[in-house]
């Protein structure tokens, strides 16, 4: 399975696919091919619970093709618990900044035609 496909499959079950460098231990998202720290291309893949906090986000009111029927929605960057990594995704039902304070707990709940799906935890 390609790295992107495997990443999406993990997201479907609420997980995030990570790749831990076998040589230096640096943690990456599962789509990586060479370690950004040491250059090694050997990794141990692991799935972890995709839970974390809102690092930042936007509420999109002028959407790209395919997202018209979902607007307004949030595009969110989540800081993944227990790591220095972040992942991005789609969140429905967010119309005002009051609906989603930065720092609030969220999790990945799926992956479909809207990309990685996130919800309040």
């Amino acid at each position: 399975m390609s790295g992107q496909k495997a990443f999406s499959e993990s997201a479907k079950s609420g997980k995030v696919l990570l790749a831990k460098c076998s040589k230096c231990g640096e943690l990456h998202l599962g789509t990586v091919m060479f370690c950004a720290k040491c250059g090694s291309r050997k990794f141990d893949s692991q799935e972890v619970d995709a839970r974390g906090t809102v690092a930042t986000y936007t509420i999109i009111t002028v959407p790209p093709d395919g997202f018209e029927k979902y607007a307004p929605y949030a595009w969110v960057v989540m800081a993944l618990d227990g790591t220095d990594l972040r992942i991005s995704g789609f969140m429905a039902g967010i119309a005002s900044p009051d609906d989603l304070p930065v720092g609030v707990r969220i999790r990945v709940t799926g992956d479909d035609e809207r990309g990685v799906i996130m919800e309040r935890d």
Binding site: T56, T58, I60, P64, F67, Y73, W75, S88, G89
Partner: peptide
């Protein structure tokens, strides 16, 4: 990671602005 989850260009910079 970005466009496929509905990020527009203004949206990406808006995320930078909120941060």
């Amino acid at each position: 990671y970005e466009g496929s989850a509905g990020a527009s260009f203004p949206g990406l910079f808006a995320s930078m602005a909120r941060a």
